[in-house]
Computed example of a mutant assay.
Amino acid sequence: MAFLQFATSAEDGGSIGTTISANNAASSFAPLEWQIIQLARHDGLSSLRAPDRWDRLKTWIFGERANPRLANGRLESLRRLAVDAWHRGYAVRPSYLKAFLKAGFNENQLETLLAAISARRRA
């Protein structure tokens, strides 16, 4: 584990003594991303596929339903992986993993996401 030390000694005249873990910074999500992960808990697996004829017929008969898809591609890849993880645990689809990593997330964030969802599923 790598640490970055941002501290000045008393000899330098400073009193700041903060240590930040570079590994934790690389594996954390922004508050908005955590909200998306929590909201994905309530999305069904059907939200991952494109609407078909049956979905359009139900929309025509019963009215429009909320579309859970996000306009931001990066956040949508996070939502798709989170939905799959909420329903399937660690057995997520490889295509969602690839899209997640391609969107700019890293493997530490993937581990954090899957571990957090797994812990919540057990509770």
Rank of each mutant, 00 (worst) to 15 (best):
P68Y: 03
R79Y: 03
L32V: 11
L81H: 01
F6E: 11
P94T: 03
A40C: 07
R65D: 06
E76H: 00
D52A: 12
A7N: 06
A71H: 05
I16M: 15
L32M: 08
E111T: 12
R65C: 05
L78E: 04
L70I: 15
R53F: 06
D52S: 08
R79D: 01
N67M: 06
A123C: 11
A2S: 08
P94G: 03
A50G: 04
F6W: 10
A85P: 03
A91W: 07
N24H: 13
K98F: 04
A116E: 13
L70Q: 11
D12W: 10
E11T: 03
R41M: 03
S77F: 12
R41N: 03
Q109N: 10
E107S: 06
N24I: 13
I61W: 12
W34N: 00
I61H: 12
I20N: 03
A119H: 08
E76N: 00
R80Q: 09
S9K: 05
S77A: 15
R65P: 03
A91D: 15
E107H: 05
S47C: 09
I61L: 15
P68R: 02
L57I: 14
R53V: 06
A50Q: 06
L101I: 08
F62D: 08
G44I: 06
K102C: 15
L114M: 14
R49C: 01
D43K: 03
F100K: 00
F62W: 12
G13T: 06
R122Q: 06
D43S: 07
L48Q: 11
G104P: 06
A7S: 10
N106C: 01
S9L: 05
P94K: 03
L39C: 02
N72L: 01
H42Y: 10
M1K: 09
E64C: 09
R80E: 05
F3I: 13
L97T: 02
Q109M: 07
L101E: 06
M1L: 08
